[in-house]
Design a protein around this nucleic acid. Structure first.
Lengths: 246, 246
DNA sequence: AAGCATTATTTTGTATACAAAATGCTAATG
DNA sequence: CATTAGCATTTTGTATACAAAATAATGCTT
């Protein structure tokens, strides 16, 4: 690999970036993702790299890498030499997304129950079980408290945490990463409507955990599937009432 | 043509990179992915950007973007300021990967059957149906020919194409992109063993399509699930015979 | 004036240069 | 001798500079 090293270039001492330009920053891709999900950037918007670079006060390089990640999540669509645009609103994919959640989460519940049954049989369920199981109890308790105090807005994040906690209880990294893949679109979907599923759905979580704890794989899968389908029905019922802002 | 305009365009000759440096190149990320899947780079290997840049004869920028994509596929693991390494061999995740395929592909078969039932009912199944359905027939025929001529090595790629074609027949982009997400690891899994599933599995594909064409959703899902599970069993039977090179 | 070829302009893609963090090594100290 | 503080090296992260492609604008021909 040769290369004409002799640039004979005036020493560019003037080159350094403004000191302090790179102030404390929180991962650009998260900020863009958030801006898309929260609707601060509309679907179809052309994401020009220089504009984003200015907006988030970084250069184009981090922007480009962030766009690659967001592309993998399906929040952004890119074509070579043609730039990136914000993906179309996920409302069209709502049915698919709920179906995906149904089958994947039923599988995670089943696997979690399998691990529990191993525990019951005296075998070791693998590392982390205790902590993961406790995490779920904490989430369930927190949900009850939140409901008792009628702070329903906080249920959404707890709900998300519960479902991911079950995935982690399954011990299967492949399922977790797949669920994480679609979580962006799921969040986006829900953020399109301020209303969320009411508190009456929360107790279903305890049924799911009961089946898992009992080591009943088929039961756990079925209860989880039913739970997600109800959440689907609730979503579409809501959409029927108040038309969405696509 | 009055006045030939000599636009002196060659002023800034100072900085240009070696001419011809960017020769015809085929997407770096595909090449790295291929090298990982084919085992030319072992799991756990530190992927240093400069080394990759030299190996693929590009600068670090395209390398970094490729690594982001591969990270999303789970073929590479990265930590900030700590670089990227090739993900561990997917053999440990084999069970999970087959389970994921089972539930996702059963769902795609079900949806494809649903579209077919709409066609039967006289409704329009949506755009692309005809072409997609024909594509499947072509693949099935090609497989029969290949088997007839005992060129079994070519079955692997046809098999992959068939399953993706069914996903496309479902008309659900979300499912397709999720399946594409794990396809890298699936390919990796299979490439670890030269042997593949024998030709006796091929006719099962026609059963799946038959159920879809008949618009029998539950049946299509079940047949597809059974098919993937058999492929799972076949894989593990093979692994039991000849120990893998982890 | 309409359609098309050609030239500007814009935007993405990539290479180089420099800064920041992590890693490894050396040496001083208990 | 083990440990650790400090320094040097290595490697990733990011900014700037330039090249290539696409898009917009211009002018020419019919």
């Amino acid at each position: 690999m040769s290369g004409s090293q002799e640039r004979a270039r005036e020493v560019g001492r003037t080159r350094g970036p403004e000191p302090g330009a790179a102030a404390g920053r929180i991962d650009v891709s998260s900020r863009i993702r958030s801006d898309i999900i929260q609707g601060r950037i509309e679907p179809g918007t052309k994401l020009r790299e220089v504009a984003l670079a200015e907006r988030y006060e970084v250069s184009r390089i981090p922007i480009r890498e962030a766009l690659r990640s967001l592309e993998a999540e399906g929040l952004v669509e890119s074509r070579k030499y043609s730039g990136s645009i914000v993906a179309p609103s996920p409302v069209e994919d709502a049915e698919d997304l709920f179906e995906i959640r149904t089958v994947l989460e039923a599988a995670t519940a089943k696997r979690a129950a399998k691990r529990a049954s191993e525990l019951i049989a005296g075998e070791a369920p693998g590392p982390g079980w205790r902590a993961q199981r406790k995490e779920i109890s904490d989430i369930l308790d927190a949900g009850d408290i939140v409901i008792g105090q009628e702070r329903y807005e906080e249920l959404a994040v707890l709900n998300m945490r519960f479902h991911f906690a079950v995935a982690e209880l399954s011990g299967s990294l492949s399922f977790i990463s797949l669920l994480r893949q679609i979580s962006g679109k799921i969040e986006w979907l829900y953020s399109l409507n301020v209303t969320r599923r009411g508190p009456q759905a929360w107790p279903e979580h305890r049924e799911i955990i009961a089946a898992i704890d009992a080591g009943q794989q088929a039961e756990a899968a079925e209860v989880m599937a039913r739970h997600v389908r109800r959440s689907r029905d609730s979503y579409f019922a809501m959409m029927a009432e108040r038309p969405h802002a696509t």
